[in-house]
Simulated scan of single mutants.
Amino acid sequence: MLTCPCHLPVLFIVLAGTTAGAFLCAHWGIVAVALITVFSVSVVLTWRAVRPEDS
């Protein structure tokens, strides 16, 4: 759930004032693409684990 792209604004707020927050703000496009990729892979792997007969 943490890698869900819709939680990116929440990460900005939670990490505000930290080095990680500064990195997120400076490179938000790269971070968004990375989070979308990680989230998509995790959804696909979860779907395959839950429904192995459909793979």
Rank of each mutant, 00 (worst) to 15 (best):
F23H: 13
A20I: 05
F39T: 01
L45Q: 02
L24K: 03
V50Q: 10
I36S: 04
F12N: 05
G29H: 05
H7N: 13
T3C: 09
V44W: 02
T3F: 12
A32G: 03
C25N: 12
G17I: 10
P5I: 06
G21F: 00
L11N: 08
C6K: 12
V44Q: 01
V10C: 11
A49G: 14
S55N: 13
S40V: 09
F12Q: 06
L11F: 10
F39W: 13
S40R: 09
T46I: 09
T3N: 06
M1N: 11
A49L: 15
S55F: 04
L35G: 00
G21K: 01
V10K: 08
H27S: 10
T19G: 14
I36P: 00
V14R: 06
T46Q: 05
V44L: 05
L24H: 03
P5M: 10
A22E: 14
A34S: 11
G17P: 02
L24I: 07
V41W: 10
R48K: 14
A49C: 12
L15I: 04
P52R: 09
T18K: 06
A49V: 03
H7Q: 12
L35D: 01
G29D: 06
L24M: 12
H7E: 10
M1T: 10
V50E: 07
L45W: 00
V43P: 00
V44K: 01
H27W: 03
L2G: 04
L11A: 15
L8S: 02
V44T: 05
W47V: 03
A49R: 13
H27N: 08
G29L: 05
I36A: 07
A49W: 05
L11R: 11
S40Q: 12
D54H: 11
L8T: 04
V41P: 04
A16K: 15
P9Q: 07
G17V: 02
V43K: 04
G17E: 00
C25V: 08
G17W: 05
A22V: 13
V31D: 01
T37Q: 06
C4L: 10
A32I: 03
S55L: 15
V10W: 10
I30N: 02
D54P: 00
L35S: 03
S42A: 12
L15V: 03
P5T: 09
V38R: 02
H7C: 12
W28L: 07
D54M: 10
R48Q: 10
C25G: 15
R51Q: 09
V41I: 15
A34W: 03
R48V: 03
W47Q: 05
T37N: 06
L24D: 02
T46C: 09
A32N: 06
T46D: 12
H7T: 12
G29M: 08
I36Q: 03
A26R: 07
P52K: 04
V14F: 07
V31Y: 01
V44H: 02
S40P: 02
A16M: 07
C25P: 00
A20T: 11
H27T: 04
C4W: 06
T37G: 05
R51N: 08
E53N: 12
V38I: 12
S55E: 15
A22L: 15
A32W: 06
S40M: 12
A49H: 05
T19S: 13
C25K: 14
H7F: 13
V41E: 08
A20K: 11
V14A: 15
T46F: 08
V43I: 13
